[in-house]
Design a binder for these strands. Structure first.
Lengths: 318, 318
DNA sequence: GTTATTTATATAAGTACTTATGTAAATATA
DNA sequence: TATATTTACATAAGTACTTATATAAATAAC
């Protein structure tokens, strides 16, 4: 099947190239997945610039052993992406002193955790003793064939992020987050009813002051999801509502974390039952509701939301 | 110095690429050195075509795991170099059945000994146990930095060729070789005197029948060099003359092999002394003459060649 | 038995480098 | 102090791939 492997040491050059190109492509997929505008080929240069705080074209060249035009071209790409800036050396006007831009520093911070995981995975794949370089390549390619490099990395990162989700209670400083997170899915799936806008704009008035609760999911201090418990009529009955996750952070099981927290909290304060109104359009949400034990019940005619076509209930085992 | 090395596993992709490109460039230098019109990037494809005797574009593609346009483009390059031919499959008119051309087979034969040496050198560099892929790359790059890959390969091949040089005595079938080999250096360094052309065209008449000897150096049955011993006046005195090595095969110590053989032969048949006429322009030749014990003697005024400005003699220790 | 899909190959344009060459500032040379 | 050389960077064009798309023959679907 794989002719190159059959050629042993003779095919080493072509093989190194193949593995390299595979890893580059896969790393690009990882960057794309996390919406980072970066390019694996720019890694060595970007790393040098970030390490040395002020380097010239030719300094990079001697560090990397690429040709000088390759460095110039990469610098131009980094400039186009606005990740670096430069100024001319005052003593030697030919020299361009290159540093990371603000955007570059921000991107660097986003890249660091990814690089960390890449390093871990490659170490996991390659820190194994073997009797020849070819054998090491075989080991590496076997592992890459079993499961794609990008998938492995992405899953590891997601897992770590999921573990670092923090759930916090309402604070007025989160009011804007509460509005933004909810208006996003409302706008994209339905039309925003005036009552919606009122509640979302004044969560303290409509939820907290009426004895309700709002929780937020945070990753590295960034608010990425929310959910609310709102008392309705009967003192013991609460509606689970206003659940939202930022589009950029979907796929990290943030919704499930919020749901688990809400149920745990309800148990803690002794709420016997939660209900919720939703729409069958929101398949992902319904999936989570069912997964956490919500069961479909008949929708009453005077349902509070126009978009509602499903009602679910969860009896809490106190 | 080498930033990429400092980045460890994280820089693996870029590093594999760097090593691969280095090996490709160096392999190209080896092919160029031996005047073989071939390209290291074409190796995997060419090898498949030569192994399978009749393959299609898509068969190559599945064997190599490159993209299909890459295969089409390489096929076009091989066609341009006239190394392959193709014909359409009779059952499926879309399929191009590709085979090596005559020129391709000849090139393959030239390539095989080079590939053998490349394999040996890479094995020498990489068949070493180590605890990680990165460490293996370090070992390889260290060795490649010590001495260039191309130089190592070229030297090994030359050494082997030098060991396979065969010296044979005159046979009329070598007459044309004798002429061609000598006329080449005569033309490029001097003007061909009528007497030269006569002698070179009729070696049997002018050398063999007069009691002289001609030897030829052969590599794989190809005549690559020659030298003659011609009796002059005195029965015991012979002139070493008409020494020539094909330009393509210079650097393999063929001249030295011919010289050693001539001296050994002279000893065997009891010649006490050899003389030769040459030109100081021919530095490489003079170097060999001195190396094998020839000592400069005064040039007589009636020197047989116009170009002659040096006479040398070797007294043979019988 | 026509139509849709798949397969085999070709073409076009883009990318990340390369080699070759150009330009301007700095430094060495005379 | 004028001129030659070196250094720092830029530009142009080529290469060995890539992705996207086209085309024609073969096969499947209806």
């Amino acid at each position: 099947m794989d002719a190159l492997r059959g050629y042993g040491e003779l095919g080493l050059g072509s093989r190194l190239k193949r593995v390299s190109e595979y890893m580059m492509r896969e790393t690009q997929l990882v960057y794309n997945h996390f919406n980072i505008d970066f390019d694996p080929y720019l890694f060595p240069m970007f790393k040098i610039i970030s390490n040395k705080k002020g380097v010239t074209n030719s300094e990079i060249q001697t560090s990397l052993q690429f040709t000088q035009p390759a460095i110039t071209q990469s610098i131009n790409k980094l400039l186009k992406k606005e990740l670096i800036t430069y100024q001319f050396d005052e003593l030697d006007k030919r020299k361009k002193i290159i540093t990371l831009s603000n955007k570059g520093n921000k991107t660097l911070e986003k890249l660091k955790p990814i690089w960390k995981k890449i390093d871990i995975v490659i170490k996991d794949y390659t820190l194994e003793s073997s009797s020849s370089l070819i054998e090491h390549l075989n080991i590496l390619e076997n592992k890459l064939n079993t499961k794609s490099f990008s998938k492995t990395i992405i899953e590891k990162i997601k897992k770590e992020i999921a573990q670092n989700i923090e759930i916090v209670s309402f604070d007025s400083k989160y009011s804007k987050n509460f509005y933004d997170l909810n208006i996003e899915w409302l706008k994209s799936y339905f039309i925003v009813e005036p009552y919606d806008d009122n509640v979302l704009s004044n969560p303290e008035k409509y939820i907290i002051n009426k004895g309700g609760y709002i929780f937020f999911a945070k990753i590295n201090n960034e608010v990425v999801g929310t959910v609310a418990l709102m008392p309705i009529g009967n003192e013991d009955l609460f509606e689970l509502t206003k659940m939202a996750v930022s589009p950029k952070h979907r796929g990290f099981k943030i919704g499930q974390k919020l749901m688990q927290h809400t149920i745990d909290f309800s148990k803690l304060i002794g709420l016997p039952k939660l209900i919720l109104y939703s729409s069958r359009k929101l398949e992902n949400a319904i999936y989570i509701y069912r997964k956490y034990g919500f069961i479909e019940v008949p929708v009453e005619p005077n349902c509070p939301y126009l978009r509602c076509d499903i009602k679910m209930a969860l009896v809490i085992d106190l």
